[in-house]
Computed example of a mutant assay.
Amino acid sequence: MTTQTIETRFNQLADDLSENGYGIIESFLSDEEVKDILSVLDDYQEAGDLKRAGIGQAENHQVDKSQRGDLIRWIEPEKAKDPTQVYLDRMRELMQFINRTCFLSLKDFEFHYTLYPVGTFYKRHLDQFKQDDHRKLSVICYLNFDWREGDGGQLRMYKPVGADEQIVDVLPVAGRLICFRSDLLEHEVLPTARERKSLTGWLRDQLLDVPF
C-alpha cells in the first residue's frame, strides 16, 4: 500500500471505530504477504508448536474445548520472522495513527498465530478481562484464501444498539483486517468447515509485562 492509501484507510478505520465500535480494512496484507506469513504458521503447525488456547487470565486460566477450540502460538516481536515482522511494523503504524486521531494512548500490543481446526469455534465472549482492562482494541488479520459463506468460521459481533443489539458477520478472507473495541463488542467465531487461520491480538494502553 502507498503512504496515501494507508493514510486514507487508517482514517476510515478511525472514523468507523468512533462511530460503530469496529472497522475493517480490506487487503491490509497483500496476497504475497499473506502467503509468506502462512509459510511461517504452517512450519509451526508441522512442528507441533501450536498449543490449545485457554480462557481466563492468570489463576483463572483454563482450557475448555466446549468454549473454544483454536490452537495458538504467541508472537515474540523481537524474535518474529521477517514475514511476521512486516505485519508487526504495520501494526505499529496503525497504533501510532490511532493515538494521534483517537487519543487512546496505546503503548503496546500482543499477537498470536491462530488456527481453528475443522469443526471448532469460540463461543460468545468479550476480550477485556474483568481484572485487567488494558486491552483496548482487538485486531484480527485473516490468512484464508478462497473463503466462502459455506465454509463457516465467520466472526460474529454483537453491536449494542440502544436496548437491542445488531449482529454483524465477517468472513475470514485473506488480507482482511478487522479492528474493534475490546470492551464493547461481544463476539464469537462460528463453527468452521475448513482450517481457519489468522493473526489475532490486542492493542493495549499499558506495556506488556508478562513473558510469552
Rank of each mutant, 00 (worst) to 15 (best):
D43Y: 00
D43N: 14
Y44H: 15
Y44W: 07
E46V: 12
G48E: 06
L50A: 10
A53T: 07
G54E: 01
G54P: 02
I55W: 01
Q57K: 14
Q57G: 06
A58P: 01
E59P: 04
V63R: 09
V63A: 05
V63P: 05
V63Q: 13
V63T: 10
D64Y: 00
K65C: 09
K65D: 15
S66C: 03
G69P: 04
G69F: 02
D70P: 05
L71P: 04
L71D: 12
I72T: 12
W74A: 13
W74N: 09
W74C: 10
I75N: 05
I75V: 05
P77F: 08
E78K: 05
K79D: 15
K79V: 11
A80Q: 01
K81V: 01
D82Q: 13
T84K: 03
T84D: 06
V86G: 00
Y87H: 06
Y87E: 02
L88F: 06
D89C: 09
R90D: 11
M91Q: 15
R92W: 10
L94S: 07
Q96W: 05
N99P: 07
C102I: 07
C102K: 08
F103W: 02
F103V: 09
S105D: 15
F109R: 00
F111S: 05
H112D: 11
Y113L: 13
P117G: 12
V118N: 01
V118W: 00
V118R: 12
T120P: 09
F121C: 08
F121R: 14
Y122P: 03
K123A: 14
R124N: 09
H125M: 06
L126R: 14
D127M: 05
D127F: 03
Q128S: 02
K130T: 10
K130N: 10
K130Y: 15
D132M: 14
L137F: 01
S138L: 02
V139P: 02
V139Y: 11
C141R: 04
Y142D: 12
Y142Q: 14
N144G: 03
F145Y: 15
D146N: 15
W147G: 07
W147R: 06
E149A: 14
G150K: 15
D151A: 03
D151Q: 04
G153D: 04
G153S: 05
G153W: 00
Q154Y: 11
Q154D: 10
R156E: 13
R156T: 06
M157T: 02
